[in-house]
Protein backbone atom coordinates (compact mmCIF):
# COMPACT_ATOMS: atom_id res chain seq x y z
CA UNK A 1 0.00 0.00 0.00
CA UNK A 2 1.43 3.37 -0.91
CA UNK A 3 0.70 6.75 0.57
CA UNK A 4 0.82 10.36 -0.51
CA UNK A 5 2.61 13.20 1.24
CA UNK A 6 1.11 16.69 1.13
CA UNK A 7 2.82 19.78 2.42
CA UNK A 8 0.81 22.99 2.55
CA UNK A 9 2.08 26.50 3.29
CA UNK A 10 4.96 25.18 5.36
CA UNK A 11 6.95 27.88 7.15
CA UNK A 12 9.93 27.40 9.45
CA UNK A 13 11.67 30.31 11.09
CA UNK A 14 14.85 30.06 13.14
CA UNK A 15 14.85 33.45 14.83
CA UNK A 16 15.18 35.96 11.97
CA UNK A 17 16.07 33.30 9.40
CA UNK A 18 13.28 31.82 7.32
CA UNK A 19 14.49 28.32 6.47
CA UNK A 20 11.25 27.21 4.84
CA UNK A 21 9.17 29.89 3.21
CA UNK A 22 5.55 29.06 2.44
CA UNK A 23 6.36 25.76 0.74
CA UNK A 24 3.54 23.66 -0.72
CA UNK A 25 3.72 20.47 -2.75
CA UNK A 26 2.12 17.06 -3.03
CA UNK A 27 3.75 13.75 -3.76
CA UNK A 28 1.11 11.34 -4.99
CA UNK A 29 1.16 7.79 -3.68
CA UNK A 30 3.85 5.80 -5.44
CA UNK A 31 5.46 8.90 -6.96
CA UNK A 32 9.13 9.77 -6.59
CA UNK A 33 10.15 13.40 -6.34
CA UNK A 34 13.63 14.89 -6.33
CA UNK A 35 14.23 17.83 -4.01
CA UNK A 36 17.13 19.92 -5.25
CA UNK A 37 18.73 23.19 -4.39
CA UNK A 38 22.14 24.63 -3.51
CA UNK A 39 23.77 24.12 -0.11
CA UNK A 40 21.76 25.79 2.61
CA UNK A 41 18.61 25.95 0.49
CA UNK A 42 16.59 24.28 3.24
CA UNK A 43 16.20 20.76 1.88
CA UNK A 44 17.17 18.96 5.04
CA UNK A 45 15.00 21.35 7.09
CA UNK A 46 12.01 20.19 5.05
CA UNK A 47 12.93 16.61 5.90
CA UNK A 48 13.27 17.28 9.59
CA UNK A 49 9.86 19.00 9.66
CA UNK A 50 8.19 16.10 7.89
CA UNK A 51 9.75 13.77 10.48
CA UNK A 52 8.91 16.03 13.42
CA UNK A 53 12.52 16.60 14.46
CA UNK A 54 11.81 20.29 13.99
CA UNK A 55 8.34 21.69 14.47
CA UNK A 56 7.14 23.95 11.67
CA UNK A 57 6.32 27.56 12.53
CA UNK A 58 3.10 27.18 10.56
CA UNK A 59 1.61 25.06 7.82
CA UNK A 60 0.41 21.51 7.47
CA UNK A 61 1.94 18.11 6.70
CA UNK A 62 -0.36 15.29 5.69
CA UNK A 63 0.47 11.64 5.26
CA UNK A 64 -2.33 10.27 3.14
CA UNK A 65 -5.32 12.10 4.56
CA UNK A 66 -3.97 12.30 8.10
CA UNK A 67 -2.43 15.46 9.52
CA UNK A 68 0.83 14.40 11.15
CA UNK A 69 2.42 17.74 11.98
CA UNK A 70 1.53 17.54 15.67
CA UNK A 71 2.77 13.96 16.18
CA UNK A 72 6.09 12.91 17.70
CA UNK A 73 8.80 11.48 15.44
CA UNK A 74 8.23 7.84 16.47
CA UNK A 75 4.48 8.25 15.98
CA UNK A 76 5.05 9.60 12.46
CA UNK A 77 7.33 6.66 11.68
CA UNK A 78 4.66 4.25 12.86
CA UNK A 79 2.20 6.00 10.52
CA UNK A 80 4.54 5.16 7.64
CA UNK A 81 7.07 7.90 6.93
CA UNK A 82 10.79 7.33 7.47
CA UNK A 83 14.05 9.00 6.50
CA UNK A 84 17.74 8.39 6.07
CA UNK A 85 20.37 10.88 7.20
CA UNK A 86 23.08 12.74 5.35
CA UNK A 87 25.55 11.47 7.94
CA UNK A 88 24.78 7.82 8.73
CA UNK A 89 24.04 7.24 12.41
CA UNK A 90 24.69 3.59 13.19
CA UNK A 91 24.67 2.09 16.69
CA UNK A 92 28.42 1.83 16.93
CA UNK A 93 28.84 -1.13 19.29
CA UNK A 94 26.21 -3.25 17.61
CA UNK A 95 26.46 -5.64 14.70
CA UNK A 96 24.74 -5.01 11.38
CA UNK A 97 22.02 -7.47 12.41
CA UNK A 98 21.41 -5.70 15.73
CA UNK A 99 21.30 -2.32 14.00
CA UNK A 100 18.55 -3.58 11.73
CA UNK A 101 16.87 -5.23 14.73
CA UNK A 102 16.32 -1.84 16.36
CA UNK A 103 14.40 -0.69 13.28
CA UNK A 104 12.24 -3.81 13.40
CA UNK A 105 11.25 -3.47 17.06
CA UNK A 106 7.67 -2.80 18.07
CA UNK A 107 7.21 0.40 20.05
CA UNK A 108 6.15 -1.48 23.16
CA UNK A 109 8.28 -2.58 26.09
CA UNK A 110 6.32 -5.81 26.57
CA UNK A 111 6.51 -6.61 22.89
CA UNK A 112 10.27 -6.19 22.99
CA UNK A 113 10.63 -8.49 25.99
CA UNK A 114 8.18 -11.21 25.08
CA UNK A 115 8.90 -11.65 21.38
CA UNK A 116 12.32 -12.64 20.12
CA UNK A 117 14.18 -11.04 17.24
CA UNK A 118 12.95 -11.76 13.73
CA UNK A 119 16.31 -12.92 12.39
CA UNK A 120 14.82 -14.02 9.06
CA UNK A 121 13.56 -10.52 8.37
CA UNK A 122 16.88 -9.04 9.52
CA UNK A 123 18.70 -11.20 7.01
CA UNK A 124 16.18 -10.42 4.28
CA UNK A 125 16.60 -6.66 4.80
CA UNK A 126 20.39 -6.96 4.92
CA UNK A 127 20.45 -8.95 1.69
CA UNK A 128 18.05 -6.54 0.00
CA UNK A 129 20.46 -3.61 0.43
CA UNK A 130 23.39 -5.69 -0.80
CA UNK A 131 24.97 -7.07 2.35
CA UNK A 132 26.04 -10.69 2.42
CA UNK A 133 25.11 -13.08 5.21
CA UNK A 134 28.64 -12.78 6.62
CA UNK A 135 28.21 -9.03 7.00
CA UNK A 136 25.51 -9.52 9.67
CA UNK A 137 28.07 -9.94 12.42
CA UNK A 138 30.27 -7.01 11.36
CA UNK A 139 30.25 -3.77 13.34
CA UNK A 140 29.97 -0.24 11.92
CA UNK A 141 33.67 0.39 12.59
CA UNK A 142 34.45 -2.27 9.97
CA UNK A 143 32.12 -0.80 7.34
CA UNK A 144 32.87 1.58 4.48
CA UNK A 145 30.80 4.74 3.93
CA UNK A 146 28.86 2.86 1.27
CA UNK A 147 28.12 0.02 3.69
CA UNK A 148 27.04 2.50 6.36
CA UNK A 149 24.55 4.04 3.93
CA UNK A 150 23.29 0.57 3.07
CA UNK A 151 22.85 -0.13 6.76
CA UNK A 152 20.98 3.15 7.16
CA UNK A 153 18.71 2.18 4.27
CA UNK A 154 18.08 -1.26 5.77
CA UNK A 155 17.22 0.15 9.21
CA UNK A 156 14.91 2.73 7.63
CA UNK A 157 13.22 0.03 5.55
CA UNK A 158 12.83 -2.06 8.69
CA UNK A 159 10.33 0.47 10.05
CA UNK A 160 8.09 -0.56 7.14
CA UNK A 161 7.64 2.90 5.60
CA UNK A 162 5.16 3.86 2.91
CA UNK A 163 6.92 7.16 2.26
CA UNK A 164 10.71 7.35 2.35
CA UNK A 165 12.82 10.48 2.51
CA UNK A 166 16.37 9.89 1.31
CA UNK A 167 18.91 12.55 2.26
CA UNK A 168 22.07 12.52 0.12
CA UNK A 169 22.08 8.75 -0.21
CA UNK A 170 24.83 8.85 -2.84
CA UNK A 171 27.35 11.02 -1.01
CA UNK A 172 30.68 9.27 -0.56
CA UNK A 173 29.69 6.20 -2.55
CA UNK A 174 31.60 4.44 -5.30
CA UNK A 175 30.08 4.12 -8.78
CA UNK A 176 29.18 0.50 -8.09
CA UNK A 177 27.52 1.39 -4.78
CA UNK A 178 25.52 4.20 -6.43
CA UNK A 179 24.30 1.69 -9.00
CA UNK A 180 23.32 -0.71 -6.26
CA UNK A 181 21.36 1.82 -4.19
CA UNK A 182 19.73 3.09 -7.41
CA UNK A 183 18.62 -0.43 -8.28
CA UNK A 184 17.19 -0.80 -4.80
CA UNK A 185 15.24 2.47 -5.08
CA UNK A 186 13.92 1.43 -8.50
CA UNK A 187 12.78 -1.88 -7.09
CA UNK A 188 10.98 -0.16 -4.23
CA UNK A 189 9.38 2.31 -6.66
CA UNK A 190 8.05 -0.63 -8.62
CA UNK A 191 6.56 -1.92 -5.37
CA UNK A 192 4.73 1.38 -4.83
CA UNK A 193 6.98 3.21 -2.37
CA UNK A 194 6.61 6.99 -2.34
CA UNK A 195 9.96 8.83 -2.37
CA UNK A 196 11.29 12.28 -1.69
CA UNK A 197 14.97 12.28 -2.56
CA UNK A 198 17.62 14.91 -1.88
CA UNK A 199 20.84 14.53 -3.81
CA UNK A 200 23.65 16.67 -5.10
CA UNK A 201 24.51 13.88 -7.50
CA UNK A 202 22.04 15.10 -10.12
CA UNK A 203 23.07 12.48 -12.66
CA UNK A 204 22.28 9.65 -10.28
CA UNK A 205 19.08 11.37 -9.18
CA UNK A 206 17.54 11.85 -12.62
CA UNK A 207 16.46 8.26 -13.38
CA UNK A 208 15.03 7.81 -9.89
CA UNK A 209 12.44 10.58 -9.92
CA UNK A 210 9.18 11.29 -11.71
CA UNK A 211 9.29 15.01 -11.06
CA UNK A 212 11.53 17.50 -9.29
CA UNK A 213 11.18 20.47 -6.98
CA UNK A 214 13.87 23.10 -6.68
CA UNK A 215 14.12 25.33 -3.65
CA UNK A 216 16.39 28.18 -2.66
CA UNK A 217 16.35 30.21 0.56
CA UNK A 218 13.45 28.02 1.66
CA UNK A 219 11.18 29.00 -1.25
CA UNK A 220 10.16 26.93 -4.23
CA UNK A 221 11.79 28.25 -7.39
CA UNK A 222 10.75 25.55 -9.85
CA UNK A 223 8.53 22.49 -10.04
CA UNK A 224 7.81 20.05 -12.83
CA UNK A 225 9.54 17.38 -14.86
CA UNK A 226 13.19 16.86 -14.03
CA UNK A 227 14.28 18.28 -17.41
CA UNK A 228 12.12 21.41 -17.06
CA UNK A 229 13.35 22.10 -13.54
CA UNK A 230 16.99 21.73 -14.54
CA UNK A 231 16.45 24.00 -17.53
CA UNK A 232 14.80 26.69 -15.44
CA UNK A 233 16.69 29.97 -15.29
CA UNK A 234 16.01 30.36 -11.59
CA UNK A 235 17.55 26.96 -10.84
CA UNK A 236 20.61 27.65 -12.97
CA UNK A 237 21.05 30.99 -11.31
CA UNK A 238 20.73 29.47 -7.83
CA UNK A 239 23.44 26.91 -8.53
CA UNK A 240 25.78 29.00 -10.66
CA UNK A 241 25.03 32.52 -9.51
CA UNK A 242 23.37 35.29 -11.53
CA UNK A 243 24.75 35.75 -15.03
Amino acid sequence: MSMSLTITNLVKKFGGLTATNDLSFTIEAGQSVGLIGPNGAGKTTVFSQVMGEHRQTSGSIKLGSEEISSLSTPARIRRGVSRTYQVPRPFSDMTVAENIRVGLMPDSVLGMILKGANTDRELELALSVGFSEDDLERTPAELSMGDLRKLEMARTMATDPKVMLLDEVFAGLTVAEIAMISDLVQKMRADGMTFLIVSHDLKALEPLVDTAIAINYGSMIAEGSYGDVMASDAVRASYLGEA
Partner: peptide
Protein backbone atom coordinates in the same frame (compact mmCIF):
# COMPACT_ATOMS: atom_id res chain seq x y z
CA UNK B 1 21.96 0.03 24.70
CA UNK B 2 20.96 1.72 21.45
CA UNK B 3 19.89 4.79 23.45
CA UNK B 4 23.37 4.93 24.95
CA UNK B 5 24.91 4.85 21.49
CA UNK B 6 22.64 7.20 19.56
CA UNK B 7 19.39 8.38 21.06
CA UNK B 8 18.33 10.30 17.94
CA UNK B 9 18.72 7.20 15.80
CA UNK B 10 16.52 5.25 18.20
CA UNK B 11 13.80 7.87 17.70
CA UNK B 12 14.46 7.64 13.98
CA UNK B 13 13.77 3.92 14.19
CA UNK B 14 10.24 4.65 15.37
CA UNK B 15 10.78 3.92 19.07
CA UNK B 16 9.60 6.16 21.89
Amino acid sequence: SAIGMNEEAVKGSGLS
